[in-house]
């Protein structure tokens, strides 16, 4: 059986000539249907580039991306994207934002079906009371939930989450993590989560795959996470395996990160300065 989503030797660079930066180099990845995988990496390692490639917002320079065996060619409703900065349209209400997406994917729905569909997914993220509100009236966490609802309502094959929680405070983050896990179980969608938080990856994903630091970032050794579902944050925190996994991933990231640090090290020669002392100016009391 062919893999659900497959990346084959994907490379991407920005700029040209001397200023060219190779962001991603030879990225290979296979995701099975219904899997929840997490990509963890340092900031600036090309995580967003990776999501944009899969979403079809940008095209790879080399290699190819296959979804269900078909080559990805531009963005499409089969891949729902949740952006880091919510990307809700501020002139539309919560309902309007979700509706815009639903109308686009299911143009044949009539008015009542449309409303029911929108309400179902807004309800799934527990935002029914805020249906008529404008995004500017919502907190960051609520906005991100609208964004998730919008992506889910399009009934995509795969949900691409681009650091969805990194702009939120720790408490909201925690509750949304649990919600994302629940939504994944209920909707049985394939999810690819990009994050800079190793704990988040371990808590949610079946596999955590580190992205080595850029330039020339590529996916490193994967870590299989075998905790039971539904996952419980407190139980997992207490689990000795959690610490082991976490330390292993952190150690790995540290190792590849050190490599990056070493290449940047430079020796600075400090100027040799001596204070000028004019003896007459000072009276020293003994």
């Amino acid at each position: 059986m062919a893999a659900f989503l497959e990346l084959r030797n994907v490379s991407k660079s920005y700029g040209s000539g001397d200023t060219m930066v190779d962001v991603l180099k030879n990225v290979n990845l296979t995701i099975e249907e219904g899997e929840f995988i997490a990509i963890v990496g340092f900031t600036g390692s090309g995580k967003t580039t990776l999501i944009s490639l899969i979403a079809g917002l940008i095209e790879p320079d080399e290699g190819e991306i296959l979804l269900k065996g078909k080559k990805v060619n531009g963005p499409g409703p089969d891949r729902g994207v949740v952006f880091q900065n919510y990307s809700l349209l501020p002139w539309l209400s919560v309902r309007g934002n979700v509706e815009l997406a639903v109308k686009q994917v299911f143009p044949k729905l009539n008015k009542t079906e449309l409303a029911a569909h929108v309400e179902k997914f807004v309800g799934m993220v527990n935002l029914t009371p805020a249906l008529q509100k404008n995004p500017t009236q919502l907190s960051g966490g609520m906005r991100q939930r609208v964004s998730v609802a919008r992506a889910l309502a399009m009934d995509p094959e795969i949900l691409l989450l681009d650091e969805p929680l990194s702009a939120l405070d720790a408490l909201t983050r925690g509750s949304l993590q649990i919600e994302i896990e629940r939504i994944w179980r209920e909707s049985k969608k394939t999810i690819m989560l990009i994050t800079n938080d190793v704990d988040e990856g371990i808590l949610l994903a079946d596999r955590v795959i580190p992205l080595t630091p850029g330039p020339n970032a590529t996916l490193g050794t994967e870590f299989k996470i075998g905790f039971e579902r539904p996952r419980n944050k407190i139980a997992i925190n207490a689990d000795p395996n959690f610490k082991k996994e976490r330390n292993a991933i952190l150690a790995y990231l540290d190792e590849v990160g050190e490599h990056r640090g070493a290449s940047k090290e430079e020796e600075f020669v400090l100027p040799d300065i001596q204070p000028i002392v004019k003896p007459n100016r000072f009276v020293i009391n003994r």
Binding site: A55, L57, P75, P77, V81, F83, L89, A101, Q104
Partner: peptide, 16 residues
């Protein structure tokens, strides 16, 4: 660019 990305991901037509 965020709004344009939304439009691209949703594959809105020229009119919408």
């Amino acid at each position: 660019q965020d709004y344009l990305n939304v439009s691209k991901v949703l594959r809105l037509g020229v009119f919408s």
